[in-house]
């Protein structure tokens, strides 16, 4: 099985402080992979780097062996729900339609084929009956379904989702997991930041344990050992913390050669 996503020596810093250090990973295609780790471990930053929202300091990554620009149409990204303004005057359908814009030129409107794809995406995510609602009227679970529908409308092969199950009702969580499993069966690769260690094995085939460094990666049944989890979830050793702080401090001082 070939790799859908390959990352080599990725380094990301924020305000000089390291967020991700020397990440190398590969996620096999047609898999459902979880990224788990404590708060501030760099999980969201990893996804954001992959879709080009954060510029890494160094490192390379590729999708099916090609760079992001060539694979853009093949990648759908779903950010955390709270990252948009839910009071914005827009309907559910109009949000889902945005999934088609990547396939069109700047002046083009959606045609009949696009509309069918949008209908289909809403159907799969279970938001068809909400399509004319204002987004301010949605519950947390409905908001997430809408964003998943938008990702489906992109007709991508790789789905990158940031905490898709955070703050949603149980029935939506179950429905989304079923949907994701169906997509994987049809050939998609799904990578999701996940916060609930207890459900990782049920939902995901593959797991990446992250805490600034990549602690472990592999089949979720293999890598979710007590030892790995302990390594991931115990606080950074104090020497690592001091080292991170030192980098931040030193960069602020003018350095003369």
């Amino acid at each position: 099985m070939s790799a859908a996503i390959t990352v080599n020596n990725l380094n990301v810093r924020y305000n000089y402080a390291p967020v991700l250090s020397d990440i190398s990973l590969s996620i096999p295609e047609q898999n459902m992979a979880a990224i788990i780790g404590p708060n501030g471990a760099g999980k969201s930053s990893l996804l954001k780097s992959l879709v080009g929202l954060i510029k890494p300091d160094s490192g390379e990554f590729s999708f099916f062996g090609a760079n992001i620009e060539k694979q853009r149409m093949n990648i759908a990204y779903v950010a955390q729900r709270q990252e948009v303004d839910w009071d914005f005057p827009i309907t559910v359908r109009e949000v889902v339609e945005m999934g088609r814009f990547g396939h069109l030129s700047w002046w083009q409107r959606l045609d009949k084929k696009d509309s069918r794809i949008v209908d289909n995406a809403m159907q799969m995510a279970g938001v068809t009956n909400l399509q004319n609602r204002q987004i301010s009227e949605l519950s947390g679970g409905q908001q997430q379904r809408m964003f998943v529908a938008r990702a489906l409308a992109q007709q991508a092969n790789i789905y990158l989702l940031d905490e898709p199950f955070a703050g949603i009702d149980v029935s939506t969580e179950k429905a989304l997991v079923e949907l994701f499993k169906k997509l994987v069966k049809q050939g998609a690769t799904i990578v999701a930041v996940h916060h609930d260690v207890s459900t990782v094995k049920d939902y995901f085939d593959y797991a990446l344990l992250l805490n600034q460094y990549l602690i472990a990666q592999g089949k979720s049944t293999d890598v979710l050992t007590d030892e790995n989890l302990k390594k991931t979830y115990t606080a950074q050793e104090s020497v690592q913390d001091s080292y991170n702080m030192a980098i931040k401090q030193k960069q602020k001082w003018p350095i003369h050669d």
Binding site: V51, I75, A79, F88, R150
Partner: peptide, 11 residues
């Protein structure tokens, strides 16, 4: 509405 998403679609 969602500049992050727009960026990921190549806009």
């Amino acid at each position: 509405f969602d500049s992050q998403f727009a960026q990921t679609t190549g806009t």
